[in-house]
Simulated scan of single mutants.
Amino acid sequence: MSDEEYPLILKAAWYYYMEDYTQQQISQMLGVSRAKVIRLLEEARAEGVIQFIFRAEDSSRMQIERGLIERFGLDDAYVIPTPGTSSDLSDSLARAAAMYVSDHLRADGYLNIGYGDTMSLVLNHLAVGRSGSLNVVSLTGGVSYYLPKISSEIFGMRLYLTPAPLVVSSRDLRDALLEEQSIRDVYRMTEHADMSLVGIGGAEDNATVLRNGILSKTELALLKMQGAVGDILTHFVDAHGQPIDTTIENRIVSTSLEDLRAMRNVVGVAAGPEKVAAIHAVLVAGYLNVLITDGETARSLLACQVES
């Protein structure tokens, strides 16, 4: 960096980082080409004229996110600070997911969404926080689980729901329902949506599937005996993310895991020590493109090892 060029470097860096001028504006002000402005800014960083200092907690968060992306082959990861209580964690996760959707989904876009308490919270936050319309397509049966508590008319949310229960009494009934034209139409919509948002459940005593009466304690205990660590879209999986072959699996009106893996921009939203094994299983199986979680869960995931 010569003495003659230093003033140009200093001015370019100041106007760009402190005054928020565009590179084109700086080019016109300094009487140089835009390509030279880019070079001046690069030299400002290389020579220490401009320095970036991250707060310690922000630097740690970025490292954790990068670790998740590299470890599990993700396109992106969003790690929030861990709140003090589990109820705060659920709401913070839902807010983060709603923000992610609003930032990354095109106007009037189509969002696939899965079953679960966190997903219901996300819908509520989207109903009050997103400007513009949104098309929501359900990935499972169970109409009542997809109805936001807040009126969807606030911003024109359009719901395309699978007209069937989440779990039915027999495999034959499930197969017959899947042949219904109204259900097939919704399934076809899920294949073309811009983004898919799914929760991940753990196989614990307060699991959503128990609280909502989807499964009994005996049924969940049997699944755990067969190696289940949790579920995604109500498909229970083992530590490697492989579906558990049970009669429950054959009675679920839900998008298959193979179809989920083939979808674009699949975002998983989950956190908590009781869900670490389930989240890890879903990640190693490659069902997700993006993970939204909290700091403590992220660190546990990076330390997690699964026996072959």
Score class of each variant (00 low, 15 high):
139 L>D: 00
139 L>M: 15
140 T>H: 03
140 T>L: 06
140 T>C: 15
140 T>D: 01
141 G>H: 08
141 G>C: 07
142 G>D: 08
143 V>K: 06
144 S>G: 00
145 Y>Q: 11
145 Y>T: 09
146 Y>G: 12
147 L>H: 07
147 L>M: 13
147 L>F: 01
147 L>K: 14
148 P>G: 09
149 K>Y: 05
150 I>Q: 05
151 S>C: 04
153 E>N: 08
153 E>Y: 04
155 F>H: 13
155 F>E: 10
156 G>E: 10
156 G>S: 09
157 M>W: 03
158 R>Q: 14
158 R>E: 15
158 R>D: 13
158 R>W: 04
159 L>P: 08
159 L>V: 09
160 Y>W: 14
161 L>I: 14
163 P>L: 04
163 P>G: 07
163 P>H: 11
164 A>E: 04
164 A>N: 05
164 A>D: 04
165 P>Y: 08
165 P>L: 01
167 V>E: 04
167 V>C: 10
170 S>A: 03
170 S>G: 05
171 R>W: 07
171 R>T: 02
172 D>G: 03
172 D>A: 14
173 L>C: 00
175 D>A: 07
176 A>I: 02
176 A>Y: 12
177 L>I: 11
177 L>E: 04
178 L>H: 08
179 E>P: 02
180 E>H: 13
181 Q>G: 00
182 S>C: 09
183 I>L: 14
183 I>M: 09
183 I>A: 09
184 R>E: 15
184 R>H: 07
186 V>W: 11
187 Y>E: 10
187 Y>N: 09
188 R>H: 11
189 M>I: 12
190 T>C: 02
191 E>L: 11
191 E>V: 12
191 E>P: 00
192 H>Q: 10
193 A>G: 09
194 D>I: 01
195 M>I: 02
198 V>I: 15
199 G>A: 14
199 G>E: 05
200 I>E: 02
200 I>H: 09
200 I>A: 03
200 I>N: 05
201 G>C: 03
201 G>F: 00
201 G>A: 12
202 G>W: 00
202 G>S: 06
203 A>Q: 01
203 A>D: 10
203 A>S: 14
203 A>E: 06
204 E>M: 01
206 N>A: 06
206 N>I: 01
207 A>I: 02
208 T>K: 01
208 T>E: 03
209 V>A: 11
209 V>D: 01
210 L>C: 04
210 L>Q: 04
210 L>G: 07
211 R>W: 00
212 N>V: 00
213 G>W: 05
214 I>Y: 06
215 L>R: 02
215 L>A: 07
216 S>Y: 08
217 K>I: 03
217 K>Q: 09
218 T>N: 11
218 T>I: 10
218 T>F: 11
220 L>F: 03
222 L>K: 05
224 K>C: 12
224 K>I: 13
225 M>L: 12
